[in-house]
């Protein structure tokens, strides 16, 4: 890792220790209603602090990807705001996106490019142009890609290998915030474990990570906060500490099934939490 990175890392860490700082990712009263009248998000509020992992849980169509899309300015919220490092990503997307890295579900890169070519392009696109080839190689090694694959074209890569490249890109961009859209879907358990480990490392470096996932166990394992979305509504939000001893799967199923929070009185309403 280059020097700039480690110094950055350090400041983050000290900032983390002093506790009181602004959230790196914040959804404030986000509401999205599509043209066809479907309400994808309903008054969503999320905050992700530096050095925190926030996992959004929810079924298909719950609004997880919509949230990420709004953060990335792929769609405009009907009301409310999404802030990355305090910058409204819909009013100044270019500035906001400097502070975020993104790994999509089932990463697909340019099939005719080699791993290194792909990484080179996307990292430069992320505004980092002073890396050397060895930096790329280090990053790829760190995410666990075999060195034989570095100069192979992406079209011959398996899903797991592509995902590793995607994470390497995100690492190299070295943005304070990271958005992960279903990052572990379709990965084998070993790759999933490796991935979890990596995310943990990134969190320890002080990144703020917002991920959407179906994987309840992994979410519980690594996240600092878990939010459960149903039909665009954040129906429950727990800290890692609160989840200790709680059967998250049961909680999840209950919320998905439409159970209200009263059924479990030691849980607090989401909105009250803030």
């Amino acid at each position: 890792m280059p020097n700039a990175d480690s110094s950055n890392h350090n400041t983050m860490e000290t900032a983390n220790e002093t506790i009181k700082q602004a959230p790196l990712l914040e959804a404030r009263n986000l509401t999205k209603v599509y043209e066809d009248g479907v309400k994808a998000l309903d008054n969503l509020n999320i905050k992700v602090m530096p050095g925190e992992i926030y996992a959004m849980l929810g079924g298909n169509g719950a609004g997880k990807t919509t949230t990420i899309n709004i953060f990335l300015d792929f769609i405009q919220p009907t009301s409310g705001n999404a802030f990355i490092n305090g910058i409204d990503s819909n009013s100044d997307p270019l500035e906001a996106k400097k502070n975020v890295a993104f790994v999509s579900e089932n990463v697909q890169l340019y099939p005719n490019f080699t791993a290194l070519q792909n990484i080179d392009f996307f990292v430069r696109l992320g505004g980092k142009s002073n890396y050397k080839r060895s930096d790329y190689e280090n990053a790829l090694t760190r995410v666990g890609l075999q060195s034989e694959a570095f100069d192979k074209k992406l079209r011959d890569f398996s899903k797991g290998m592509r995902q590793k490249c995607g994470i390497a890109i995100a690492i190299l961009k070295n943005a304070p915030a990271i958005l992960l859209d279903e990052p572990t879907s379709g990965l084998d358990p070993k790759a999933g474990k490796e991935f979890t480990k990596l995310i943990g490392e990134l969190r320890d470096e002080g990144k703020a990570i917002l991920m959407s996932t179906h994987d309840i166990f992994r979410a519980k394992e690594i996240s600092d906060h878990v939010g459960i979305l149903n039909n665009g509504e954040l129906v429950a939000q727990r800290t890692n500490a609160e989840l200790k001893g709680v059967n998250l799967e049961q909680l999840y199923v209950e919320y998905m099934a439409g159970y209200m929070e009263e059924t479990n009185q030691n849980l607090v309403l989401t909105n009250d939490l803030n």
Partner: peptide
């Protein structure tokens, strides 16, 4: 379709 568009625009690209 391949998702590279999203990946590109997760950066500060106009």
């Amino acid at each position: 379709v391949s998702g590279t568009l999203k990946l590109c625009f997760s950066n500060s690209v106009s």
